[in-house]
Amino acid sequence: EMEYEEITLERGNSGLGFSIAGGTDNPHIGDDPSIFITKIIPGGAAAQDGRLRVNDSILFVNEVDVREVTHSAAVEALKEAGSIVRLYVMRRKP
């Protein structure tokens, strides 16, 4: 069973403070093209906020749908998102 969360982060000097993997051209798990959080960087915006978790998958960055995009398109969406970034994420319920 999945749960969904909308997380708004303010981009810090060091960016959003997380790493991603995945994409249609580089699936992270099997042939699932989802964009997954692979690392939360200590002291970064995501770590300070505390809600984003490793293995969360990002569905939307602001209004941009990143469910079926290449890795570089997801990176671009995050880069272009401005200083306030709304992430709509999905994760397995614990």
Rank of each mutant, 00 (worst) to 15 (best):
E1W: 00
D49Y: 03
I58N: 00
I20L: 14
H71C: 02
L78R: 00
T70I: 14
G50M: 11
I29T: 13
H71W: 13
N55F: 13
V85L: 12
A46N: 02
G50F: 06
G17R: 09
R67C: 06
K39H: 11
K79M: 01
I40C: 06
M2N: 03
L16V: 13
L52N: 00
F18G: 00
R67T: 15
T24F: 05
L16F: 05
L16S: 06
A77D: 12
G22Y: 14
S72V: 12
E10L: 10
E5L: 14
A47N: 05
V85G: 01
R86E: 02
G22D: 10
T70Q: 10
D32E: 05
S83I: 15
M2H: 01
G12M: 13
I20P: 02
E1H: 13
T8M: 04
S72K: 11
A46R: 01
V66N: 03
E6M: 03
G15T: 15
G17L: 05
P27K: 06
P33S: 05
L52Q: 01
L59E: 13
G44K: 07
Y4T: 09
R91A: 12
A81H: 03
N55L: 12
R53L: 02
R91F: 14
K93Y: 01
R86F: 11
S83Q: 06
G44A: 11
S14L: 08
R11I: 12
G43E: 13
G15P: 04
E5H: 13
S57Y: 12
A73F: 05
A74W: 07
P33F: 12
E6C: 02
A77W: 10
F18E: 00
N26C: 03
I29F: 14
D56R: 00
G50P: 04
R51I: 15
V61C: 06
A74E: 00
A46V: 11
E1Y: 03
A46I: 10
A74F: 13
F36E: 13
R67E: 13
G23E: 03
H71N: 15
D56C: 02
V85F: 02
V66H: 02
V61T: 08
E63W: 03
I20H: 06
D65C: 12
E76H: 09
F60C: 12
S57K: 12
R53N: 03
R92L: 05
E10W: 05
M90N: 15
G44F: 15
L59H: 15
E1N: 15
P94G: 05
E10D: 07
L87T: 03
E10N: 08
A45V: 07
R91M: 13
I84D: 12
I41W: 11
D25T: 13
E76K: 08
D32A: 06
D49A: 09
Y4K: 10
I35P: 13
H28T: 05
E1K: 15
G22A: 02
K79A: 01
R53K: 11
G50I: 03
S72G: 07
A46Y: 01
S83P: 05
L52I: 12
G43A: 11
A47H: 15
G30F: 04
V75M: 09
R11V: 06
V75A: 04
S19V: 01
I20G: 00
G12A: 09
T38Q: 07
S57N: 12
E68F: 01
D25A: 14
R91W: 03
E68N: 04
I20A: 07
R67Q: 08
D25Y: 04
P33C: 12
V54N: 05
A45P: 09
P33M: 09
A77Y: 05
G17T: 01
A73M: 10
N62A: 10
L59Q: 11
M2V: 02
S34E: 04
K79R: 01
E1A: 02
A73R: 10
G44P: 01
I29A: 12
A74T: 14
P27H: 08
E10P: 10
P33D: 12
G23H: 04
N13T: 07
N26Q: 12
M90Y: 03
I7F: 15
H28N: 09
S34Y: 10
P27R: 12
R53G: 03
G30R: 12
L9I: 15
T24N: 15
I41L: 10
T38D: 05
L52P: 05
L9T: 02
H71K: 15
D65H: 14
L78S: 01
S19G: 05
F36H: 10
R91N: 11
T24G: 09
D25N: 14
G30N: 14
D49G: 08
